[in-house]
Design a protein around this nucleic acid. Structure first.
Lengths: 251, 251
DNA sequence: CAGTAAACTTGATACGCATCAATTCCAGAG
DNA sequence: CTCTGGAATTGATGCGTATCAAGTTTACTG
C-alpha cells in the first residue's frame, strides 16, 4: 500500500463520487501521454464534450467483452487494464497491458465488434470516448484525426514487436523486455521506473509472453540471483538496468 | 507457369508500359477488397486523383526500407509482398504477407518512419497512396476516414491472431492456419482456394511462423502423408480442407 | 484473526522443435 | 543443354521450455 500505487482512488460505488476524480482533458496530468498533440483551447473543449471521463471500476471487472458491439475506445486513468482474447478452442491469450494515459479498444473498429475483452487488473478509473462522435470530430480537427491514425499505427508496431519476441527470443529475453517496457511507461508518468508494483499476476505475464507460470517464476528467481532485479511478490526493484538491457537484446 | 499465376504481367522495364495495366480505382477488379465502401462517383474520382496507380516491381526488390521516412501507404495490385523488420541484434522477422487488393505500410504512420521493410516476392505491381493527401481527403470523405480506421484496426486484429498462434499453437497448427488464410485470400479474388502457388519461400514461411525451415519442411511432408495436402515445391493442392481446419484449431 | 482457496515457487521428468549435417532438387546463367 | 549455387528435404542429436507434482506463501472471506 506504500508509495507507488497510492493513486488508486475510486471504486465502483455508485454515482456519488463519480465526478470527483475527473479533471478536464486540458488539465489532466496524463494528457502528455494520452493527447500529445497541439489542439487549440476551443478544440480541447470540443473533445471534452464527447469524452465520458473517469468512470470507475473495481479490480477484476470487465470493461467490454469479446464479440460485444463496439462503440467506444477507452483511456486508462488510474490502475491497469489487460486485454485478452479467447480462441474457438478455448485458449486464452493476453494481448496487452495498458497503463494510465494509454488508449485501448481500437481492435474493435474493423468489425464493429470487439475482438478482445478488457479487464481491470486493479481498481481504478478510465475514460470512455464514443467512437462515432470521435470520428465526426476527427473530420473537423485534422490533428485529432492524425493523432488517432498514429495511435493505431503504434498499436500495430507494438504488436509486431511482440510477434518478433515470441518468435525469436528466449523466455529470459521476453521477461527482460517486458520489465523494460513497464519501467519506461512508469517513468513516462513521472513515477519511478526502477521501483514499482506489478499490477498483473504471474499467470497474466506468462500468458502474455507465451510461457508457463513455472517458467516465469524460475526466470524471476534467476534474475534475482543474478542481482539484476529484486522481486518480492509483486514489488519489483530494478538493480541493474544495464544488465537488464543486455538480457533483452531486442528492438 | 500454368493457370493460377498468369496475371503477373508487368516487370520493371521502364516507362513504356507503365500505364497499360492500370485501370481506374472505380474499374479495378480488386476494389471489392481494397475499397469495400460506398463512395459516390465523384468521390472515387477524387481518390483516383491522389493514387499513384500501378507502379511495377521486380521480384526481390524493395518498396520501402525500415527506418526510411514514411510518406505513403500501398496496395498490392499484382504479385505478393512481404513485410519484415530487423531487430537491433540483427534478427529478422517476417511480419506479414500481402496479396492483391491488400494494403500495407500502415505501421509507419506513428513515428513518420517505416518500422518494416517491404519486399516483392514476385514481379508485380502496386499502387502508392501518399498519406498526407489521403489524410486531407479523409477529412472530407467520412466514409473514407472510417475505411482507413477499419483497415488499421483489422491489421491490429490480424497481428493479435498471429500473436496467439505463436504463443499457443504447435508448429502444425500454425502451418495449417497459414494455409487456410492464404486459401481464403485467393478465394476472395475469385481464384481457386484449393489449388495455388505459394509466392513465398520456405524460409519466409518458417520465419513468419516462428519456426525453422527444417520444421516447416517436415510438417509439409507429414501433411502430405496424411493426405491433407499435395505439395510439389511451391504448388499446393488442398485435398481435405476439413482436416486442415481440424489441424488449425484457431480463431 | 482464523480458515481456505488461489497464487506462487521449486523440483523431476518429458517432449517438441532447434541445431547440426548431409543429400537432393531446382532455377537461373551461360 | 549443362553447370552451379541456393532452396528444400531428410536424418541424428540436444536443448529449452512444458508438464506433472508437491509444497509454500499470499490474500480473500467471514
Amino acid at each position: 500500500m506504500s508509495g507507488v500505487e497510492s493513486d488508486v482512488i475510486a471504486v465502483n460505488n455508485g454515482p456519488k463520487c463519480r465526478h470527483s476524480p475527473s479533471t478536464s482533458c486540458g488539465d489532466c496530468r496524463l494528457s502528455g501521454i494520452c493527447l500529445p498533440i497541439a489542439l487549440q483551447h476551443d478544440e480541447v473543449a470540443r473533445l471534452e464534450d464527447i469524452v465520458n471521463r473517469s468512470k470507475t471500476i473495481q479490480k477484476g471487472y470487465t470493461i467490454y467483452r469479446q464479440d460485444q458491439e463496439f462503440s467506444a475506445v477507452y483511456a486508462v486513468r488510474v490502475g491497469c487494464v489487460k486485454t485478452m482474447r479467447t480462441t474457438q478452442d478455448g485458449k486464452e491469450q493476453v494481448t496487452g497491458f495498458y497503463f494510465p494515459g494509454e488508449i485501448f479498444g481500437m481492435d474493435g473498429i474493423s468489425k464493429n465488434r470487439h475482438t478482445n475483452s478488457a479487464v481491470a487488473l486493479e481498481s481504478g478509473a478510465f475514460c470512455e470516448i464514443p467512437f462515432d462522435r470521435l470520428q465526426e470530430l476527427s473530420s473537423k480537427l485534422p490533428s485529432l484525426q492524425r493523432h488517432f491514425f498514429q495511435l493505431m499505427s503504434s498499436e500495430i508496431a507494438f504488436d509486431q514487436q511482440l510477434i518478433t519476441q515470441l518468435s525469436k527470443n528466449s523466455a529470459e529475453e521476453r521477461m527482460a523486455a517486458l520489465f523494460l517496457s513497464i519501467s519506461s511507461r512508469f517513468a513516462a508518468r513521472n513515477q519511478s521506473g526502477l521501483r514499482f508494483r506489478l499490477p498483473m499476476s504471474r499467470g497474466d505475464i506468462s500468458n502474455y509472453l507465451g510461457l508457463t507460470v513455472e517458467t516465469v517464476s524460475r526466470i524471476l528467481t534467476r534474475m534475482q540471483q543474478a542481482e539484476i532485479i529484486n522481486i518480492d511478490n509483486k514489488e519489483v526493484e530494478i538493480l541493474d538496468i544495464e544488465k537488464l538491457r543486455m538480457s533483452a537484446a531486442v528492438l
